[in-house]
Design a binder for these strands. Structure first.
Lengths: 211, 211
DNA sequence: GTCTATAAACGGATAGAC
DNA sequence: GTCTATCCGTTTATAGAC
């Protein structure tokens, strides 16, 4: 599945413009603090008009979250392809680094759609959570499988906890990382090194950067 | 400063009962989704009566957040005292483990007051954030100083990022850790080992547990 | 200290004109 | 496809009785 199909009506159709504006406001203010009147104002429409494109505020939010997951999932698959296509066989650390870079690039490169999964998912209406949980589970399963293959000595329980710890470390960066002040790939390398080698070992720079 | 002074009017005065109920609801539903009517109902009062104890909803939320930080800060100081009083001089890893355990124990042991700092701080009203930022900074500074002393080879920038990565890994546990299914001190040990030694090294159990 | 009553504003959602 | 107008519920906060 591809995350960004061009809509039939063109690149910036009414529906997509609403989706972009909604994502930006949800990311900025949270779900409940964002009113439909505010989103409508951002695309120079009236609140009632949104209901031609979306059935409810919940449905609009689900659409935004679904797009966020689709982008993350595509990013993971792209990283897996680059690893498979690498001329020299990569070691485990380089393999992990490729995926951490991909995750962080998509996360920060589509902030409005992806950050909501970190900040607003827990307090979202139950119906919203239920609608998006399967897609989230599928993405998390990719990571669990990856870590399991990279750390063959660990039990399934340990892999599960390590994934949560890694996600906590990486995803919390949306609350503080500022792309104008730091380089995202550099941060990805620091996190990978910390996770893989530990903070007590001197940091070795990863030169296997892909662009 | 002590975090839990007994109020003049007794252990469960009106004000403290409101504070406890508010914290529980804020943690469960978030700031905006929690109405004053709901909090009042939990303590068998009417919404208007809350204004005798608190000037506004914002002020009530700030009081909850401030108590959360005070508890975390006291927990850190307690860990520091245990380290200083240890008969044998502890190594860096054991020193870190003591503080990670203390942080996690206070975090999960006072969930209603502390989890809000992880889940609801970012979307809180600007006035609320401004009021609580100094206390948060002071707690973070304790950790920055600790990590700096434990990792003398690292630059201040690196220490800052490592603290954020560690906080992300630890604090995100409030979204998934269930004390009924897992042992919190065991998790603290896993996180400490992962942070200090890295996931690629076999896990060595820490026997220096304090009770 | 707690209550009732109410002000004033804002929310999601719908109906029907154009 | 978008607008206007409106319904109806909920919110924080205040005023004054008890």
């Amino acid at each position: 599945m591809v995350a960004a199909p061009i809509a039939e009506t063109g690149p910036s159709s009414g529906r997509d413009r609403i989706l972009d504006a909604a994502a930006a406001r949800f990311a900025e203010l949270g779900f409940t603090e964002t009113s439909l009147r505010l989103i409508a104002g951002d695309v120079e429409m009236k609140a009632g008009s949104l209901y031609y494109h979306f059935g409810s505020k919940d449905e609009l939010f689900v659409s935004v979250l679904a797009r966020g997951i689709a982008l993350m999932s595509d990013g993971f698959d792209g990283a897996a392809q680059r690893v498979a296509a690498a001329a020299e066989q990569q070691d485990a650390r380089a393999h992990l680094a490729e995926h951490v870079r991909a995750h962080l690039r998509v996360l920060h490169g589509n902030f409005a759609f992806t950050s909501l999964h970190v900040t607003s998912f827990r307090t979202a209406p139950e119906a919203v959570r239920a609608a998006i949980v399967p897609e989230r589970d599928a993405y998390e399963a990719k990571w669990t499988a990856l870590l399991g293959s990279l750390l063959p000595g660990r039990s399934a329980d340990e892999i599960g906890i390590l994934r949560l710890v890694l996600f906590g470390a990486i995803n919390s960066s949306i609350e503080w990382f500022d792309a104008r002040r730091g380089n995202l790939d550099d941060f990805a390398d620091v996190v990978t090194d910390q996770f893989w080698n530990g903070a007590s070992r001197p940091h070795e720079k990863d030169d296997n950067d892909s662009t």
